[in-house]
């Protein structure tokens, strides 16, 4: 057991110790205050949405809703919010499920210099990010129509094309720092290719894979333009519904509910990804 009472600092050196201690404490509180401020800055815009989602009446200039209720939720449900949410979830997950492995394979090949003119290929890969999606999609819609590709397939295909640059970019960086010596070590320890993949390779790239999958999911989840053009309004995803009600009805509780629904899944996923990678780095 250490001394119960910290000896009171005294003398000149004591004063210096005291000042250092005060400064350290101030710095700690400063950092905490900074964190709180940044978090608040990010969360404050959500406050009106959260309030609106449970407000049946909120006339100007009241500071809080005058009548609370779930009217917004009922309207949103009536407008098909839940099927739209399911559609968007499926779209995001499908795009992610296709674009992530594609990006992993492409990123691995690029990182190992197995691709001729690798730098040019990398630049080309990022091109769809730079070109406005509207321009790309208009052309692709025509192509899909001419070829008779079903709308949903064409939609997924185009969104995968939009997501692959992100997943490739992330996975290329991950594989650039990947030490193949781990796999060699595992093999000499008796691990066959399946064990190497499942027990060594995938766990080592898991944080990058999670990040890539999350971004690819967002591409499908949040897409508006491509779904609108290729789906020709028949594939109603959550962003489409949100866009339609925001531009038309002016029913604020409904819009708030839809916005909330559009926000929650990505936030949950991001939290999951962060927790996963934090567990990995916390050693």
């Amino acid at each position: 057991m250490t001394a119960l009472v910290t000896p009171a600092p005294h003398g000149r050196s004591g004063r210096r110790v005291l000042r250092a201690r005060v400064e350290a404490r101030a710095a700690k509180w400063g950092r905490r205050a900074g964190t709180v401020a940044v978090t608040a800055l990010l969360l404050v815009p959500f406050l009106p949405i959260l309030l609106w989602a449970f407000a049946d009446r909120w006339p100007y200039p009241e500071l809080a809703p005058t009548v609370w209720g779930v009217g917004g939720w009922l309207t949103a449900t009536a407008q098909g919010a839940w099927p739209a949410l399911t559609r968007s979830l499926l779209l995001g997950l499908t795009v992610s499920a296709i674009a992530t492995p594609l990006g992993a394979m492409a990123g691995r090949a690029l990182a190992r210099g197995r691709v001729p003119y690798g730098k040019m290929v990398t630049a080309l890969l990022l091109a769809p990010v730079a070109v406005p999606p509207f321009a790309v999609t208009m052309g692709l819609t025509t192509v899909a129509l001419r070829l008779g590709v079903p709308g949903v397939v064409a939609l997924v295909a185009v969104l995968v094309v939009a997501a692959v640059p992100y997943t490739t970019y992330i996975m290329r960086a991950a594989y650039a720092g990947y030490d193949e010596g781990f796999e060699e070590t595992a093999r000499t320890l008796g691990a066959g290719s399946r064990h190497v993949l499942l027990r060594v390779h995938l766990p080592l790239v898991a944080p990058a894979l999670a990040a890539a999958a999350f971004l690819a999911f967002l591409v499908g989840w949040s897409d508006y333009v491509v779904t609108l053009l290729i789906g020709a309004g028949r594939i109603v995803s959550l962003p489409l519904l949100l866009g339609a009600s925001a531009s038309a009805s002016g029913n604020d509780p409904t819009i708030a509910v839809l916005a909330l629904l559009a926000t929650i899944p990505p936030v949950l996923l991001l939290t999951a990804v962060t927790v996963l990678s934090r567990r990995r780095t916390q050693r």
Binding site: G181, T188, G190
Partner: peptide, 15 residues
């Protein structure tokens, strides 16, 4: 993986 020859590198490469 079937040779029963384990190689230990200069870098320990613990998983």
């Amino acid at each position: 993986e079937l040779r029963h020859t384990v190689l230990v590198f200069q870098s320990p490469r613990l998983f």
